[in-house]
Amino acid sequence: MFIDTAEIHVRGGDGGNGCVAFRREKFVPRGGPSGGDGGHGGSVFAVADPALNTLYHLRHQKSFRAERGEHGMGSNRHGRSGGDVVVPLPLGSVVRDAETGEPIADLLAAGERVLLAKGGNGGWGNQHFATPARQAPKFAKPGLPGEERQLAIELKLLADVAIIGFPNAGKSTLISAISAAKPKIADYPFTTLVPHLGVVAGDDSRTLVVADIPGLIAGAHRGAGLGIRFLKHVERCRLLCHLVDASGSGDAENDVEVLEKELREFSPEVAARPRVLVASKIDAVSDPDRPASIARAAASRGLPFYEISAVTHRGLEPLTHYFFDSVSREPSAAGRS
């Protein structure tokens, strides 16, 4: 199951209390203070795990609490510090404070480690409070509580190319033809209900990641269809591959304009991202003027244009070569919100 939002509670471990103790040894009737310090509480960290691609593992585990530090002991023995807790998150996870909205982490690199909740410091034992005027302090410092917060986590997929288009435009068929991804494919709208990622291998050992974004319709930025829930997954992509169904009928200008408007309404920055216009299902054309109208729409916008059939693999090689050439010229997704 694809889950791209989650809310969790994290708490660092409390620090252990300092100890009140005195030396009690033979022939030392008035031993000085010997209370040890409390151990520090463990902290909670988020770590980017490339093996994950969804937040499903947080569906049932909502709370993460680090271990508290042990209390100090006599004979100047310090308490053991509490163990840390790690929350694994997929690449592209954005972590915010659920109450204030303050950004805490944006995990873009495998193994990246970010502090979510710091453990409390351990308290001082009474040995620290001895002075010439107070040689037998009967008090110690308690440990501090660990940091506690409620966090909202949002996953924005990291992909080089986002395949966008109306429902049933052939997006899933394309990603299954150029990669090893196997999304559900059927001849009805909204077959794809969640994004799929596929890795495309180039001729020179290069690879790129392609995302199949569920179909968009007019009003998607306001929540129509599957809404903006999945539009956010195109924010980090370097190239937009806009598929237009060539097997339909009529002028394609309106179809292209509707999707462009949805992108602009959602994010002008995303709408300005490099884009290639692709006429899909070219093997099933029923209206000869349809592919020509898609080509005209691309020309009027100064966009690259390709005709493909994912079923017969016609035109796929030139398109994937364009993907690699275009992505190599664009900055990486790192730093994009």
Rank of each mutant, 00 (worst) to 15 (best):
R229D: 03
R68A: 13
G13L: 04
E148M: 09
R296M: 04
R30I: 12
G41P: 09
G18Y: 14
A51W: 03
L243V: 02
A297P: 06
K171H: 06
D4W: 14
A252Y: 02
P183T: 07
P183I: 07
A252H: 09
D251K: 08
V114S: 06
M1A: 00
L263E: 02
L151M: 14
T5W: 02
H128M: 11
A220P: 11
V270C: 03
G335I: 01
G12Y: 04
R113Y: 00
R80S: 13
R275G: 02
I185K: 07
E330I: 15
L116M: 14
M73K: 13
A279K: 09
V47A: 06
K281Y: 12
P29C: 05
H71W: 05
S337L: 03
P304G: 15
R236K: 01
A220E: 04
F324Y: 04
V327A: 07
A271C: 02
D14C: 09
L277N: 15
D283K: 10
A48H: 11
H221N: 14
C237I: 08
D37Y: 03
G198L: 03
L208N: 13
I104T: 06
G335C: 02
G122S: 12
D4S: 15
P291D: 00
R11T: 12
L158G: 00
A110H: 04
F45T: 13
S280P: 08
A211V: 09
K118Q: 05
E253C: 03
I294F: 06
Y306K: 14
V276G: 15
G119M: 04
L239K: 01
G123M: 02
R77E: 13
V47Y: 03
I185W: 06
V210P: 06
G170L: 04
I153Q: 12
D204L: 11
I217R: 13
V278P: 11
G82Y: 04
M1C: 02
I294Q: 08
R65T: 15
C241P: 01
I175V: 04
H313L: 05
G92D: 06
D187L: 02
E269M: 01
G35H: 14
N168P: 08
N126P: 12
